[in-house]
């Protein structure tokens, strides 16, 4: 049985993509982010192209490439954008692109649930916390990016670790997925809805699978959410004082701002 993709092509493409991602991580002085993104795109593009050329009869449809490009580009931007608010907005874009992929995979219900829960609820919470926890620029002060946002920590080592992991996982593709047989499908909803005289919809099938196949898991999910809510409430209502060092820093900042205003008044 021939392998699904040439291993050398896969490893070289992933190495090129890793170099690109490492270049795109934010740095202080020279910041070749666009070049890094292009190199990462070329690397992954080579692998996908190799995958398509090796299996001409099994090319994923056009929407896969469009949504995949948007999803990967947006994820790269989440990781590399120095401003947290923009990172969160790009994350919403990558969630929307993944929803497109879900629809292509005929999982409509999960696509809409993802838009509502992820992009609608979780990310809004993130945006609120980002706004609570960053100082807004005032009229006399231009916004300064925090030092810890501008510079990544050990980009080369981190990229090597991640892409070696990715190469290890994807190397299973040489023969692994080719050996898998597509299953005949066991749609229990068709048996349950036997009176309906029609094909069960995606939502009905998921509901039957969830309630008949795995009834206990809903209880577990409920307990997880309840514990998270209790924990978050306990954590959030605790009163904490600023530490001495942080107090000192805040005082210095206030003093600097006051000095700036005074200089402007004198001028």
């Amino acid at each position: 049985m021939d392998s699904i993709i040439n291993p050398y092509l896969l490893f070289v493409g992933l190495a090129v993509a890793g170099v690109g991602v490492a270049m795109a991580v934010p740095r202080k002085r020279v910041n070749p982010q666009v070049i890094g993104a292009v190199i990462a795109g070329v690397g992954l593009g080579v692998v996908l192209l190799g995958l398509a050329l090796a299996n001409l009869d099994a090319i994923p449809n056009l929407h896969f490439y469009v949504f995949g490009l948007i999803a990967l580009g947006a994820s790269l931007r989440v990781v590399t954008h120095p401003r947290p608010v923009y990172a969160a907005l790009y994350f919403i874009l990558s969630v929307l692109a993944s929803c497109g992929l879900y629809v292509v995979l005929s999982a409509e219900f999960m696509a809409f649930a993802l838009v509502i829960i992820y992009a609608g609820a979780i990310l809004i919470t993130y945006l609120f916390v980002i706004m609570l926890a960053t100082q807004s620029p005032s009229e006399e002060r231009v916004e300064v990016l925090a030092e810890y946002d501008v510079e990544g920590r050990r980009p080369v080592l981190a990229t090597i670790a991640s892409f070696v992991l990715l190469a290890g996982v994807t190397s299973l593709m040489f023969k692994g997925t080719a050996g898998l047989e597509p299953a005949g499908g066991d749609d229990r909803a068709a048996e349950v809805l036997v009176d309906a005289a029609r094909e069960p919809t995606n939502t009905e099938s998921i509901g039957v699978d969830l309630l008949l196949g795995r009834p206990g898991t809903i209880e577990i999910a409920g307990v997880i959410l309840l514990m998270a809510m209790l924990g978050a409430t306990v954590l959030a209502r605790r009163q904490v004082d600023l530490e001495d060092e942080a107090k000192h820093r805040a005082a210095e900042q206030l003093a600097a701002r006051g000095g700036l205003v005074r200089e402007e008044v004198q001028a």
Binding site: V79, M173, L180
Partner: peptide
């Protein structure tokens, strides 16, 4: 087809790797 599945798995793996790079490098 299995090769189509492989393309999706590659995309998912690349997204996971990018997220891991971000988790390791970002300091915020």
């Amino acid at each position: 087809a299995p090769a189509t599945l492989a393309a999706y798995l590659l995309l998912s793996g690349a997204m996971f790797a990018i997220g891991l790079v971000g988790f390791l490098t970002r300091r915020n």
